[in-house]
């Protein structure tokens, strides 16, 4: 790992690009979704405007220290995920702080944000936050099962825990991507991704029709801004992770943008046309098909 200032600055630049891309991606996706309804949808720059406004608001409520730390943790989850993820294959500038064991760390960071959120939202005192958090934790636990199984399967397949090496192993053509070499693991992971992105049918955590809007019920202003920034980063980072693991990584930004967009779009594609599951239904669902796929993926490579 390289700890030089230059590296840090490059990483920061990467973070900036990723954040903006994340926001543009979300507005684009929402515009596409709006077209399915027959609407025009938000302007492409709306996320920035919203974010500017949110950061300009002053907090008025005080629910204790953890309440403030929650969003910070959550943001750290997203940033952490990004930090240890190589974005562009073969580029020193955009490989961030990826290291040989980064896959494990990243799995941890995926959950880290949620835990932070749990702490903060719990402090918020609102019953909806609490209900949302307990649902979120339950669902994330089950999402992690197929996800981890898939990761283990890949680790077994490529005999490494370094993302960069996994990407490297996929270089050499379209058919060397994991999605073809290990379709079961890809399947399991892509299904768990549906849950990770929080679109229906797995968005009961934030279900605005019953517990509006779950964990962030009490969050507003800067804290909500943190959460939104995190979302932008997290979505791209997570999509980039999947891209690296299953879809051959990216050798330049264009490729990254296209691939992350498509991966993210996958969850919207499903989410647009399905209602949401109840929490026990989604828990059951994750423990059925995706888990079976994950186990299958491991069994094959054992």
């Amino acid at each position: 790992m390289d700890y030089s200032i230059t590296k840090f600055l490059w990483t920061l630049l990467g973070l900036f690009i990723v954040t903006n891309w994340g926001m543009l991606m979300s507005s684009t996706i929402r515009r596409i979704g709006a077209r399915v309804s027959g609407r025009i949808g938000i302007p492409w720059y709306q996320p920035w405007v919203d974010l500017t406004k949110l950061y300009s608001l002053k907090s008025q409520v005080s629910h204790g220290t953890m309440f403030y730390l929650g969003p910070v943790f959550r943001l750290m989850g997203g940033v952490g995920l990004f930090l240890f993820l190589p974005m562009i294959f073969g580029s020193w500038h955009w490989s961030n702080y990826s290291f040989s064991g980064d896959l494990v760390l990243i799995l941890y960071f995926q959950l880290f944000g949620m835990l932070g959120m749990a702490l903060g939202a719990g402090e918020g005192g609102h019953p909806y936050s609490t209900i949302g958090v307990s649902r979120g934790l339950a669902q994330f636990t089950t999402i992690e099962v197929p996800m981890t199984l898939a990761v283990i399967s890949i680790a077994i397949q490529y005999h490494t825990l370094s993302i960069s090496q996994i990407v490297a192993a996929q270089q050499g053509g379209f058919f060397t991507w994991t999605v073809w070499t290990n379709p079961f693991a890809t399947g399991a992971a892509m299904l768990s991704l549906l849950g990770a992105f929080g679109h229906s049918p797995f968005n009961l955590i934030q279900a605005p029709n019953e517990i509006p809007i779950g964990p962030p019920t009490e969050y507003h202003g800067v804290f909500l801004g943190f959460l939104r920034t995190n979302n932008a980063i997290l979505h791209v980072a997570e999509a980039a992770l999947f891209m690296n693991l299953f879809f051959g990584g990216a050798t330049n930004w264009i490729e990254l943008i296209v691939k992350t967009f498509l991966i993210y779009f996958w969850s919207v594609f499903v989410g647009m046309v399905f209602p949401r599951f109840r929490i026990e239904q989604s828990v059951r669902w994750f423990l059925k098909i995706p888990t079976l796929l994950g186990i299958l993926a491991i069994v094959i490579f054992l």
């Binding site: 596409i32 709006a34 077209r35 309804s37 027959g38 025009i40 594609f269 046309v273 399905f274």
Partner: peptide, 15 residues
Amino acid sequence: TPFTAWKRVAKEPVT
């Protein structure tokens, strides 16, 4: 069948 809803994405918005 629910995915057939996506065919609307090509249509002009009615706004």
